[in-house]
Amino acid sequence: MIMDDFLWRAGIAGIGVALIAGPLGCFIVWRRMAYFGDTMSHSALLGVALGFLMEINLTVSVALVAVTISILLVLLQMQRWVSSDTLLGILSHASLSIGLVVISLMSWLRIDLLGLLFGDILAVTVEDIYWIYGGGLFVLAVLIKIWRPLLAITVHEDLACAEGIQALPIRLIFMLLIALVIAVAMKIVGILLITALLIIPAATARRLSRSPESMAFFSVLVGVVSVCAGLMVSMEYDTPSGPSIVTVSALLFTLALIGGQLSHLTHIFKR
C-alpha cells in the first residue's frame, strides 16, 4: 500500500499543509501578523509538553495552548504599559522556554526534540495525515466562509465595522484557524519554522497576483512546490525536512524578487 512508504506519507502530508498554509498565510502577511504567528507556533512546544503530561492527543493539546496564548495576548494588549511588539516577544520566548523546561523535567520521556523543533518526515503517521486533511478541510471551509468579512477588516477595520461587520468574532475565528494550522503543520516543518511556511509562499505569490484570491491560489502553488522539492532534498541529502522546505521556498522567493526587479528594469528601459 502506498501509505506504507514513509516518503509518500510525508509528501501527502506536506501537500496538505501547503494547501491550507497558503491562503491563511496571505492573511498573516496582509495583516502584518508574522510575529504573532511566530508567538503562537512557539507555544506549540508547551502544548506538546502538556499533551504528554495529561496524556491527551498532541494535536488537540497544541491547538488548545495556541488558542489560549492568543486569547491571553488579546487581553494583555488592552493594557498600555508594554507595547504589543514587546508583549509578543515575551510570550513567544517564554512559552518556548517553559515548554523546553517542562519537557526536560519529564525525564522518563524519550522525545525527539530536534524533530519537534525542525520537523521530521519519518515521524509522519497515517493518523497525522487524517488530522492534516480533516483539520485542513475544516480550516479551508471556515476560511472561505469568513473570507469576505476578514478581507474587509484587513483593508480597514473601522470602515468594515461602520458597514455592519462584527470584527471581533471574525478576528477570533481567524486566530483559531491559525492555531489549528500550527497544530497540524508542526510535524512537517517543526515548531520553529511554521511561520516561514505561512509567510514565504504568500510573499512570493505577491509578485504574480492582481487580486487577493489569485494571491491565495499562487501561494498554495508555491507552497506545494516548496514542500515537494524540500522533501526530495531532505531524502536525498538526509537533511532535516523543515529547514529543507523553508530553504526551497526562500529560494523561490528570491527568484520572484529578482524576476520582479528585472521586469521593472526592462519596463524602465522600454520607456
Binding site: 502577511v29 496582509w30 502584518r32 483593508v155 480597514h156 487580486s211 487577493p212
Partner: peptide, 12 residues
C-alpha cells in the same frame, strides 16, 4: 475614513 493605507502586499 481618514486615510486608507493598504498594506503593499495586498493586491486589490
Amino acid at each position: 475614513p481618514q486615510k486608507l493605507t493598504l498594506d503593499e502586499t495586498l493586491p486589490l
